[in-house]
C-alpha cells in the first residue's frame, strides 16, 4: 500500500511517515504543491494525505486536480481549518475523510486503515488478529469461534487497537476516538481505563489473554 503525504510541516510529515510505516505502508513525502502535482503525475498511490495550506498553493486546488485527472486514490484531508464548512466543502469536493489538526497519529492510522479497506473491494470483511476474528459488516466479534458480546464503545476500542496493532496508543487518542467532539468536554480521560478493563476481561474470558498491553495506565498496545 502506497501513501503520499502532502504536508509542508516536515516534522509532522516525518512522524506520519514513521508511524504509518510501522504498519507496513510505504510512505512518500512531498512538502509543496508543485512536487505534489509531479508525484501524482508519475506514480499511483492508494491513499493521499493532503494538507490544505501549502506554501505554494491551495490544497483544495490539488484535490480538484486529483478528481479531474481521475486519480483513483483515496484522499484524507489533514487541515488546520476545522470548521464544519471546511469539512463539508472538502468532502463535497471528493475527499474521503477530513481530519482537523491537531490529531493523534493513531487516529490518522485508523482512518487510513478504514479508507484503504473501503477501497479494496476484493477484501473480505473479516478482520483477523491473534485469536480474534471480527466481521466488520455484522460487527460480530469471535474469539476461537466463541462469539463475545461487546458494547459499541468496546467494539470501537477493539478496532482502534487492532488498527494500530503493535503500536502504543495513548489514552487521550482513545478517548477522542470514542467520544468524538465530546472529548473536548472531559477533564480527564480516566473513563478509558474502565473500557479497557471491560474489554480485557471479556477477551480474557473467551481465552484471549495478554493481547492488550497496558503501559502504566497511559498507553495501550495491541500485541500481535
Amino acid at each position: 500500500m502506497k501513501i503520499l503525504v502532502i504536508e509542508d510541516e516536515r516534522e509532522l510529515s516525518g512522524n506520519i511517515k514513521k508511524y504509518l510505516e510501522a504498519d507496513n505502508y510505504l510512505c512518500e513525502q512531498v512538502f509543496n504543491y508543485n512536487d505534489a502535482t509531479e508525484k501524482l503525475m508519475l506514480y499511483q498511490y492508494d491513499c493521499i494525505l493532503l494538507d490544505l495550506n501549502l506554501p505554494d498553493g491551495d490544497g483544495m486546488k490539488l484535490l480538484d486536480e486529483i478528481k479531474r485527472k481521475d486519480i483513483r486514490s483515496g484522499v484524507i484531508i489533514i487541515s488546520a481549518r476545522d470548521s464544519l464548512d471546511d469539512k463539508i466543502k472538502g468532502l463535497k469536493e471528493g475527499a474521503d475523510d477530513y481530519l482537523a489538526k491537531p490529531f493523534s497519529l493513531s487516529e490518522l492510522s485508523i482512518r487510513v486503515y478504514a479508507l484503504l479497506r473501503r477501497q479494496s473491494f476484493s477484501s473480505n470483511n473479516i478482520l483477523k488478529s491473534n485469536e480474534v476474528e471480527i466481521d466488520l459488516l455484522s460487527k460480530a466479534v469471535k474469539v476461537r469461534d466463541t462469539i463475545i458480546v461487546l458494547t459499541k464503545s468496546e467494539y470501537d476500542l477493539l478496532l482502534f487497537l487492532i488498527g494500530n496493532c503493535n503500536r502504543v496508543v495513548s489514552k487521550n487518542a482513545i478517548a477522542e476516538h470514542l467520544s468524538g467532539d465530546m472529548a473536548d468536554m472531559f477533564d480527564n480521560h480516566n473513563f478509558v481505563y474502565a473500557h479497557i478493563k471491560n474489554l480485557k476481561s471479556k477477551l480474557g474470558d473467551a481465552g484471549c489473554l495478554n493481547c492488550i498491553r497496558t503501559m502504566y495506565g497511559t498507553g495501550y498496545q495491541w500485541v500481535e
Binding site: N15, A22, P102, L105, S106, V168, S170, G219
Partner: peptide, 13 residues
C-alpha cells in the same frame, strides 16, 4: 500543536 502531539505519539512508541 499537531507537531507537538505527533512527537508525543512517536515518543510513546
Amino acid at each position: 500543536l499537531a507537531v507537538f502531539q505527533s512527537q508525543l505519539d512517536m515518543l510513546l512508541q
